[in-house]
Nucleic acid binder design. Sequence first.
DNA 1: TAGTCGTGGTG
DNA 2: TCACCAAGACT
Length: 344
Amino acid sequence: MLESSEFNHNLLDWYQSNKRTLPWRQTRDPYRIWLSEVMLQQTQVTTVIPYYEKFITKYPDIDSLAEADEEALLKDWEGLGYYNRIRNFHAAVKEVRDNYNSTVPERPETFFNLKGVGPYIGGAVQSIAFNHLLAAVDGNVLRVISRLDADGRDVARASVQKDIKKRIEEIIPLEAGDFNQALMELGATICTPRAPKCIMCPVQEHCEAYSRNIVSELPVKKKAKRKNEIYYNVYFILNDRNEILLRKQEGTLLQGMYELPKYDVDTSVESIEEDLQLSIDTSGRHVGSGKHVFTHQVWYMEGYVLHTRDRHPDFVPLEDVGGLPMSRAMQKIYEQFEVPAERM
DNA sequence: TAGTCGTGGTG
DNA sequence: TCACCAAGACT
């Protein structure tokens, strides 16, 4: 078990002399902290930084983001992934504008009710911006605590995460924001998933896993399920006006992003004509292949060019395609078409 | 609870 | 190459 006073002192002391705090956190501007926490979920700091800079320049405050067009936001988010994050953040920010006078709620109960605000983001924003005594439990913290306590339970379980959050809140000091960031920083730099640097750890003497020599066995996690492999034919459908057929992705995966029509490889051209309500004139040129790995799926894509003389509401001028939000998956196949087209 | 949701880095 | 993982939330 953690000896709270000595443990806290060692951890905070280490953090003060080693911290590489994200610069915008020093402002304690709750909007900036909130935006960055939304971007940081399941995403590395180095990936987030350019996106954060772009957003904070274009949308420096609650009102400017609330007023933004959703498709423009999606375009700015393009490539960052988990696109529901920006939709939820947009909705939450609009609620703050409309119901809370464009001021980020300082009451935890109010803030936690906003869209996209879960236990981590809620705790992080409320502790860093307002010094509320709440834990911010991310993957780093789960790993750190499971090792300190030699806790062999599956950290993926919500009940275990709740437990760890409660446990931290029993010892969290008044400098709650710094304490949370110190735990995360410790996990990111010392108490790493592989090859942890226990020799440099400021709280080594408090670590149950270290004293039992079982650090490498923790945390315990279930093995990931095998990914589903999907094979698509992807179609570049062109008309005689230098336009290409694009549509908005439906369903839940990549919702709202623009895509080339894609069909399971065994779908006939007749079914495609039926589905799109247009007739294909010439068909067939193969333009390339692409593979994209998602969390739970792998796409294998083959791209083909088709021509039609029909009208269709979803045709887009080729020069406008770059302005529409498109997933990396679709970009991978689209790039292979674009380059040869420019040479024609 | 367990599955879903992107993308890039790493050993 | 490949499995794992990253300042998680929603259904």
